[in-house]
Design a protein around this nucleic acid. Structure first.
Length: 861
RNA sequence: GGGGAAGUGGCGGAAUCGGUAGACGCAUCGGACUUAAAAUCCGAAGGGCCGUAGGCCCGUGGGGGUUCGAGUCCCCCCUUCCCUACCA
């Protein structure tokens, strides 16, 4: 038997073993080896988009963390579902395909193979039998099927909407994919255009998406982001009549109906339908130019930091419904300005410059009157400046003297009575723009009839497969690539044989990830998306691990679909992801020369601790891994040089899973040294026995432990306790530190018994599974350590009878003494006094604080 | 502008409750082994001061406060990172 620690050999062999024995397969209800008494636990990683670059060391951080949890849960007797797949539809594959002429199905396949190889290399204990990619017809058939459910419920509709059109990508993008007027992917400029698009009515679920956040165990920061994204705000809609336009009214939304008397002008968005009707001849030229400008050129400026308010007077006047039409104060000018957005509320506002910062700015710039109608609780209304704080209403006859929280409902009641307004809740959340004019996505299972009506493809005719196309580049006119597949587009209705046209849009990249966690429960079902039995057993995801970048979009979309499926009676739970954990970002070191230039890592020379380049000393800073800095680390190389187990340990040893932290290549060997030491404790590298003789025989029962072996037992239990604790907060760095400490403490090595060694290996196995399997097997076990029981902490060995008593004078440590855990407060004080006797000499003790088991503090004069 | 997270040695980080700051690891230095080196093993080490044993002072971004005692709690400020951006 080869006795030198050889990670390459051990790791390849055990990965082969796991594959051969299907060690990590999770049986489903109905399968022969399914045990209904075993509790379930579902640990899910946010599955990757398989890019051409493969994994870098940042990606597997969360995967390793979840794998450790998974492996421990398995050892604790849970039936653990831990699958992996690929989010394989999307823009980058298609862009790459267009550039290289390769079909995206082909490049996706190649990329998936790379990801699979790398994921397997890391020894992640997925149930690979459940693996799938969202771009295969077997999967997207059911994505289309779920879309059909949304369609049937009226939650999917087509409408002409002004959408972000990206000329560079030749597609529409959702609001979320456009940042500052440029595409998130590729950074191309975008413009707004009216186009017919598929929308999903996520707004119908706004309240439930908001309220049910109370039921999930998620980081507060993510919940907050979702709440703000949904952005529920309560207020009122108020109708303003328009002077000289009989019958025409302008409806506004406000959260401060109590400030209605302070409205001194109104503003409508440039896209507001009434702009054309209200503008006077005199103003028409200027208004037209402004509206044009807002639509075309100002995409950047409108969202830009340039908060300088612009706008144009329409020439028309609104009439404040609370004032007599003849009152000159009732007549308020109406402006068109781009700080009001068509997509929110009614696209029109009443402007109350005394109590709204934005209106105040506008009023200042255009010299409009400012009329305060709220005074601070303890002061007078100031005629200058602006405050949006609550206070007490003034100059508001119908609710004068009322505090803001009372004035709001009161004003709504008054408006309702007069028939010119009503309470109203609006949301920042918009309906979800769900179509893309692209090739590489799920086709919509929808047929267009000659009379302009639509129907959906019957369920039994799914999937609607993507047609094979050679040229899938978007046509110049902006029509979808699928429109070029004329044989595919022109078809007949499966039931009626009527000639119909297929819908030529495809679904956005988010679609496939909306329900993949459900498909994993029953990944190869060809009758339904997932069986009732499977989802009844697996329920939902117990632990979902991924990065914060999905805090809003993916998690909100998936929750939305889940709730629709809940309403369909297809899932038993209201929420898909019970506990969410965000791993931190992996950064890297970068080096700055004295001029502040970042120096690529391969140009840096290390002289001990100081980094240099061309004789200049460099400053070490933390930066993202990037190609340009050449500081991207590939897991393949790390695994090759040090071994997979070392790689896994280092990824976890860097710090808490939730923290962002820098990869330091110089720290990696420390983890390898630890594994070398573990190996040598078990195995005599110069010998030929599988393990050292002391581990080859059975031990005395733990109750008979004494001497050094007893000390080892204590150290082991301290270690196991700290390892258990690490799972509470996912700070596995402390677990690994505990293993290292145990090694430092367990001396002499000969005192370690076989039983202790076995428990150590079992505890180590989720972290360093390959070397643990090898040692476990060398200890004489035929079965994988993956199913061995998790070692329990034996509390009786955590109890220490002695401790080091700290003696303080005025809160500063002035001495130490050994004391018994049993000692009374008086005893401890006595011991402490003796320990610092000469320092207390001549000083008067005013007070003594005794903390049993810890310290004594003398307060002296 | 708004929201969130964080700031501890040369570096990554540790410190359930307010109770020995710096565990564990890296880098560094010293010793053992070796012809030598590597590897390994043992040991030192926050900073400053007092010739030493030992002791004293300072020290968790800065400044105040509460407390016998603060990395931890409260107030003010600074810095970094992430998210968000006229949502009426």
């Amino acid at each position: 038997m080869k006795n030198v620690y050889d990670p390459q050999e051990i790791e390849a062999r055990w990965q082969g073993f796991w594959e051969e024995h299907r060690t990590f397969r999770a049986p489903n209800p109905g399968e022969p080896d399914f045990d209904a008494d075993q509790p379930k636990y579902y640990v899910l990683d946010m599955f990757p988009y398989p890019s051409g670059a493969g994994l870098h060391v940042g990606h597997p951080m969360g995967y390793i963390g979840s794998d450790i949890v998974t492996r421990k849960k398995r050892m604790e007797g849970f039936n653990v579902l831990h699958p992996m797949g690929y989010d394989a539809f999307g823009l980058p594959a298609e862009q790459y395909a267009i550039q290289t002429g390769q079909h995206p199905a082909k490049t996706t396949e190649v990329n998936v193979a790379t990801y699979r190889r790398q994921l397997k290399l890391i020894g992640l204990s997925y149930d690979w039998s459940r693996e799938f990619a969202t771009s295969t017809p077997d999967y997207y058939r059911w994505t289309q099927w779920i879309f059909a459910r949304l369609y049937d419920r009226g939650l999917a509709y087509q409408t002409e909407v002004p959408v972000w059109w990206c000329e560079g990508l030749k597609t529409v993008l959702s609001n979320e994919e456009v940042i500052g007027g440029r595409s998130e992917r590729g950074d191309h400029p975008c413009v707004r255009r009216p186009l017919k698009q598929w929308m999903l009515k996520i707004t119908a679920y706004a309240d439930r998406l908001l309220d049910d956040l109370g039921d999930v165990d998620w980081p507060e920061s993510v919940k907050t982001m979702q709440r703000e994204w949904i952005g529920r705000s309560e207020g009122a809609e108020i109708e303003f009549a328009i002077a000289d336009h009989e019958g025409e009214t302008l409806k506004v939304f406000t959260t401060r109906p109590d400030t209605l008397y302070g409205a001194t002008f109104m503003v409508v968005a440039p896209e507001h339908p009434l702009v054309a009707a209200l503008v006077t001849d005199e103003q028409s030229k200027e208004v037209e130019a402004y509206v044009q400008g807002a639509a075309v050129k100002s995409d950047l400026e409108r969202t830009d930091l340039a908060k300088d308010k612009t706008g144009v007077f329409l020439g028309a006047y609104g009439l404040n419904p609370m004032l007599d039409a003849g009152d000159p104060e009732a007549r308020v000018p109406i402006y068109v300005a781009d700080y009001v957005l068509m997509g929110y509320g009614t696209g029109a506002i009443m402007a109350v410059p005394a109590h709204d910062e934005r209106d105040f700015e506008y009023a200042q710039k255009f010299g409009l009157p400012i009329r305060p109608v709220v005074r601070p609780v303890d002061g007078d209304a100031s005629s200058e400046g602006c405050t949006s704080n609550d206070g007490v209403s003034v100059n508001s006859p119908a609710w004068d003297g009322m505090p803001t929280e009372k004035a709001k409902p009161r004003s709504i009641a008054v408006l309702e009575k007069r028939g010119c307004g009503a309470g109203k809740t609006t949301y920042r959340l918009r309906d979800w723009l769900f179509s893309r004019q692209r090739y590489w996505g799920e086709p919509f299972p929808v047929l267009h009839h000659a009379d302009g009506s639509t129907s959906r493809v019957p369920d039994e005719a799914l999937p609607v497969e993507l047609p094979e196309m050679q040229d899938f580049a978007p046509p110049e006119d902006g029509s979808p690539p699928l429109s070029k597949a004329t044989d595919w587009v022109n078809t007949t209705h499966p039931s009626t044989d009527e000639p119909v046209l297929r819908d030529t849009d495809t679904m956005p990249g988010w679609a496939g990830s909306c329900w993949y966690y459900l498909r994993f429960m029953d990944a190869h079902n060809d009758q339904e998306p997932f069986s009732h039995d499977a989802v009844r057993y697996w329920q939902n995801v117990d632990l979902y691990i991924g990065g914060t970048e999905h805090a809003v979009l993916h998690l909100l979309y998936a929750r939305f679909w889940h709730k629709v499926l809940y309403d369909e009676g297809l899932v038993p739970t209201k929420e898909p992801f019970q506990k969410l954990f965000n791993q931190g970002m992996l950064t890297a070191y970068a080096y700055k020369d004295p001029t502040g230039r970042l120096v690529p890592v391969d140009e840096v020379e290390f002289d001990g601790d100081t980094a240099k380049s061309g004789g200049q000393e460099l400053e070490q800073v933390i930066a993202k891994m990037s190609k340009s800095l050449r500081n991207v680390v590939n897991p393949d190389e790390v695994c090759k040089e040090y071994g997979v187990d070392t790689f896994r340990l280092y990824e976890m040893f860097m710090g808490p899973l939730s923290d962002s932290k820098p990869w330091n290549p110089r720290d990696v060997p420390g983890c390898r040294r630890f594994l070398d030491r573990v190996w040598r404790i078990f195995v005599d590298e110069d010998g030929t026995d599988p393990v050292r003789p002391q581990f080859a025989q059975a031990d005395a029962p733990p109750s008979a432990l004494e001497g050094d072996t007893l000390e080892v037992e204590r150290a082991l239990n301290r270690c196991l306790k700290r390892v258990d604790d690490a799972f509470k907060h996912f700070n596995f760095n402390t677990a690994i530190a505990a293993f290292m400490s145990f090694l430092n403490e367990a001396k002499p090595r000969e005192a370690i018994t076989r039983d202790q060694a076995e428990r150590f290996v079992r505890a180590l196995s989720p972290f360093a599974p390959h070397v643990s399997e090898e040692l476990w097997s060398r200890l004489g076990h035929d079965e994988s350590v993956a199913r061995a029981p998790w070692p329990e902490v034996r509390e009786e060995f955590l109890v220490e009878d002695q401790f080091e008593l700290v003696v303080q004078i005025l809160g500063k440590v002035r001495g130490r003494a050994q004391a018994s855990k049993e000692a009374s407060k008086d005893d401890l004080e006595e011991i402490a006094r003796a320990a610092v006797a000469e320092k207390l000499d001549g000083r008067e003790i005013v007070k003594t604080i005794v903390v049993p088991g810890r310290l004594v503090n003398f307060v002296v004069k």
